[in-house]
Amino acid sequence: MKPYLLELSNLNVSYPNGIQALSAVNLKIDEGGLWGILGPNGSGKTTLLKAILGLLPHNGKVLFRAQPIKKSAKQIAYVEQKGDFDMDFPITVFQCVLTGTYPKLGLFKKPGSSEKQAVLNALDKLGLMQFKNRQIGQLSGGQFQRVLIARMLVQNADLIFLDEPFIGIDMESEALIIHHLKQMALNGHTIIMVHHDLKAVREYFDKLILVNRTVVDYGATEDIFIGEKLKQVFPYYHEVVLA
């Protein structure tokens, strides 16, 4: 039997101040598909991603294809919220996207012509060719989010996490990004994305994970995006969304 792409068993995360951010999280995810993580503010969505990635101390098992996830870190990409970046950093769009090739290159190796060509292809797909020599601080929010997606494309990872990539960006950028994410999911990549706009859920995601200090439920969008399930994490708002 093929192992799960990602398997979480009894994952617990608590902050240094003693607050339990996530308890007893159990989750099994197969290869492929575009997953949405839904939950109210402060429900632990970003914490869940960071714990899976090993960026936060946690208890419990996190397995990637039945192996500890640390062993496969190069097969995993993470697009964090764009507000976490130093926009004055001396780096151009081209170089920023090129950093996506670094994890798989290994120590001491420099990116060659194939890596640079992959960057150009990604910039072209995201409509960023005219900005390739710009410093990142000279871009709009939507353009910079597209840069981060281009970097994720060149990483060519099997499992991809995105944390609220559509906050503060224009509709055109959002449409372009979701188009490429769907394309990647069709090509066998597994994408897990924290998302806040419930109105676009049915259109965007094949599968959903409901989070509220634990994983409340998960599965196909048509099975999860229904009143009785949503009520567990959005006791008031679900009626507005489903109306």
Binding site: L53, G54, L55, K70, A73, K74, I76, A77, Y78, E80, D84, F85, D86, F89, I91, C96, T99, Y102, P103, Q155, F161
Partner: peptide, 10 residues
């Protein structure tokens, strides 16, 4: 530039 990505990708 991006310590989080560096950590996440090993």
């Amino acid at each position: 530039f991006d310590e989080t990505m560096a950590k996440a990708s090993g």
